[in-house]
């Protein structure tokens, strides 16, 4: 089974302070650590596990700049067979439609049985790229996948619903799945492992090679336009309790006692 995993490099903002750039169009990137989008990492791991079980090949692709090749190389070290980079310069990257156009054009040029990507990306969290790509390709998809089982040209997956509920869905191949975190435990790739794949060529594709014009994927062709960024509104603020840990603990216990 040949699998394509679409990945993206994003800043890790879980524990970091995110500072707006003065032009309000972006964020200060200097103090942020960048890496493969968490959801995509689970997708890559899942693809490699499927390959190890079912045979076939795993390819990874990103739309990015040369700086983004490190995540591709990391995927190669994890066990992906091929990595491709679609040069992002003509793309309007804030628009998931542009990205999906690029990915679907790429997928059309190859033949994959299965395409995977993360449910969403940790930066913009649209959760659109997967279903949009599937729609453009006309292949079935499902989102929020928490397990995959391959059987005779079909795959059965479970997808995560709300309230601790899951549903099982069967899809015909080729199909596209968006992968939820926690589906597996992604493996660690060592630097030596990455070095071993350092000479592996990563083909760089230009949009025109994929039959995409700058008008389609550039800002003028964007469906979704990112207008501005701002700090979240102050809104309702919690009443802050300050003091030494001891004093705070006492106060908390007092509050708790009053209620429970």
């Amino acid at each position: 089974m040949d699998i394509l995993v679409c990945i993206k490099k994003v800043p890790d903002t879980a524990d970091a302070e995110v500072i707006l750039r003065s032009d309000g169009k972006g964020i200060e990137e200097e103090d942020l650590a960048f890496g493969i989008n968490e959801w995509d990492n689970y997708a890559v791991e899942e693809a490699i596990r499927l390959k190890e079980k079912e045979g076939g090949k795993v390819a990874v692709v990103t739309i990015g700049t040369g700086d983004d090749e490190d995540i591709l190389r990391r995927c190669l070290a994890m066990g992906a067979d091929d990595a491709y980079r679609i040069d992002s310069s003509p793309f309007y990257m804030d628009d998931p439609y542009s990205v999906a156009k690029g990915l679907s054009a790429f997928a059309k040029k190859h033949s994959f049985d299965l395409i995977m990507t993360g449910v969403m990306a940790g930066d913009m969290s649209y959760a659109m790229t997967g279903p949009l790509t599937a729609g453009m390709l006309g292949i079935p998809h499902t989102t929020l996948v928490t397990s995959i089982d391959v059987k005779d040209g079909n795959i059965s997956v479970t997808r995560e619903l709300e309230g601790g509920l899951e549903e099982s869905v069967r899809l015909e191949l080729p199909a596209l799945l968006t992968i939820q975190t926690g589906i597996n435990e992604p493996r660690y790739v060592s630097i030596m492992g990455i070095r071993k794949v350092r000479s592996k060529e990563i083909p760089v594709l230009r949009a025109e090679e994929l039959g995409l014009s700058a008008e389609e994927i550039g800002e003028q062709g964007a469906v979704l336009e990112l207008e501005s960024l701002e700090r979240p509104p102050e809104g309702k603020e919690a009443e802050m309790i300050s003091g030494s840990p001891d004093e705070i603990a006492e106060k908390i216990l007092e509050i708790v006692k009053g209620v429970v």
Binding site: T13, V18, E225
Partner: peptide
């Protein structure tokens, strides 16, 4: 149609629009 969305782990709010 303009929308506000919470991005970067809820640390930034973006305004996006569509036709």
């Amino acid at each position: 149609l303009r929308a506000k969305r919470s991005i970067y782990n809820g640390k930034i709010v973006s305004s996006v629009s569509v036709d």
